[in-house]
Design a protein around this nucleic acid. Structure first.
Lengths: 211, 211, 211, 211
DNA sequence: GATGAATGAGAATTCATTCAT
DNA sequence: TATGAATGAATTCTCATTCAT
């Protein structure tokens, strides 16, 4: 019951985490130098190593800090007494909000997964996401067992949902072109989010429960 | 009267293109040094610059050389007298084959699109893919106009299909975990490809035409 | 209460400026590598870039730092109440001292001017020197207006004086041969300087004022 | 008595000599790459080494080929029955013509002399020029012996004449500024040459023979 | 916590030159 | 003579990291 002052009150460290997340997401981990980072937060070059040990540890901290969030929300959803379809529907809502809001973070981990550069990090990310998606798959399997859902390919259905989110976030320039938006502000607007949720839910409904 | 097979012509150059595609796909453009590349093909360090000018121009050549392929196949499909659903179905087949076979290339361009490092390259890729996806959207719109398809969100449907492919290729470690495969050989096997095609077509059918 | 003399402050930076001036003057900018420079001052290769950004910026700093000196002295001479001839005579003295003492620097800027490699730098040097020589020409024009000097070609007279200095500094091996000196120590000795001043003043006197 | 076709009828070799002289003069020996040279004459990279052995031997051939010219003309002038002043006057004419016309060559050898990079080459140039200037000094000494010239400093007088030419050629941008010409075409025009000859002869006359 | 100088490894690139054809 | 690919050394510069203050 120690009422400490908020532990990350220290400005530089928190700033570095924030700015690094954005810069890594935009240009890639290897393309952002420690000097650029330091300059971007108005700190000394040595601060990254002082606070995080190495540049890679900074990356690891960015990622591991935010990974557990989704897991917790999915698990509580899983324990709730809602119907499988309601759980799936809320899952779509939650993912949409998370991905749209934390675009940088998700672009970052998705790109990290597509590389074979830092296997330990890939494993951490993969384990987290796989656990989450297994929960989502559970919703589908539940629905199939009680006859509410048709016998679709549950794993690939989950993959399709995840891929839709992932692509919308990672390939923003392409999505702008497809959606004929002027990009960036438009594509991640509240309106777009609503449209995207409706599309995914509609498709899942047809897929799982028929028209 | 020497009708030799091109003897050693372009040996080094072609080798570099091949090996670079694989290495860039695996570790990312910035993480692969020119020295590594040269070592991997058993050539001198200077050969990359000799043949391509700069490392980035090598990347550009890799990408621009293979981009037009898909476009041509989609355009001929577009001109064919098949029904919208048949066109869509063949499109799924073609994309599956292309993505599964040319995994390295597609991982590469998808990661490139997710970065803001080389805007000119992103534009080239985006333009090509957007053109292709506009053709696919055309198939959906055609189906909707002749009453065969339901009034779904055509653009986001296309995005979902693309996202499914993209994620399957780019996030291979995650997909392995979801599909409970031992990865790599399994996930891109003939069997998986058939499964994936069936899933996508089934989902599209339910989405577009009802159960 | 430590009123230390600047202890080791700027050690490396100042050393680099000094040594680079000498090496650039002797072998030419392009022929001196950053490695050689670093080795010559016992510093790390990266120090040139750390302190000056690029090798060329080091050159620019060497040059722009010392250019203004002469200007100030000529301007104060210009404002003085001396006669035109006295001004000219003191100008010869000053130039002789400057050139003999700062041989490396002057060889450097003179060679730089003879190249078309770094136009921005050439412009800076040219502007400075042209301003200075315009002041010297002013002394001649003044003398001509008040009837003390004959109507010689003022611009080319200035050019001749400058050329004499320049050649003595830049073509040292040739000057040694002409003057039948054993070179280097002899040619830039106090004795030589006196001889050179006397020659130039004598020639100018005959040229401007008759025997 | 073999009436061969002129031996340097071979285009590439002669072209290389010409173009290299110009490029070396403009940008300096070290700044001009063999590839640039080859490109400038539309030949293959290997041609420089094929024709001249090394890049430096190309430089040496450029220089040694043209050095003897002036010597011969001065020696024949020396043997002529003209008066010392006439000889000096013709010397000024000859130098002016040579320097103005062969600017590139003279800029090149003058810059070479100001470096300590290629001592053997410096020695060859120095020996040639020193021999020539010794002849010119002889004209002055002759005039002094027969009482026509005053007892000026003969060596430095020669140095001044040489320095005037040298500076006019090497520091063209500065000379343009002093002479308020728009440069390049103007400064080396026929008119400028006449002006320069008149100035030098006038100055020498006053210096050597009084007004 | 923070600074600025310093380090050593490694990056991409360019160089003159060579060689088989 | 001429070509184009190839070589290996050397170039400038940037990197993450460290250290004394």
């Amino acid at each position: 019951m120690s009422n400490l002052p908020p532990p990350d009150r220290n400005g530089t460290r928190a700033l570095l985490l924030d700015v690094a997340e954005r810069l890594f997401a935009e240009h890639g981990f290897e393309a952002v130098s420690v000097r650029q980072l330091a300059a971007a937060v108005g700190a000394n070059v040595a601060m990254v190593n002082y606070h995080f040990g190495t540049k890679q540890q900074l990356l690891e901290e960015i990622i591991t800090a935010r990974l557990p969030e989704t897991r917790e929300r999915l698990e509580s959803l899983s324990r709730s007494p809602l119907s499988p379809w309601e759980k799936l529907s809320l899952t779509v809502d939650m993912y949409a909000e998370k991905f749209f809001q934390g675009r940088d973070f998700h672009r970052l981990i998705m790109r990290e997964m597509s590389l074979r550069q830092r296997p330990a990090l890939v494993k951490i990310i993969t384990d987290h996401l796989a656990h989450n998606l297994a929960l989502v798959r559970g919703f589908i399997l539940d629905g199939q067992q009680n006859g509410m859902f048709r016998p679709v390919d549950a794993e690939l259905t989950v993959a399709t949902v995840f891929g839709s989110f992932s692509s919308l976030i990672s390939h923003c320039s392409l999505m702008c072109a497809i959606l004929e938006e002027d990009c960036e502000e438009d594509i991640y607007s509240e309106k777009s989010q609503i449209r995207f949720k409706a599309h995914l839910k509609g498709m899942l409904q047809a897929h799982l429960m028929g028209a």
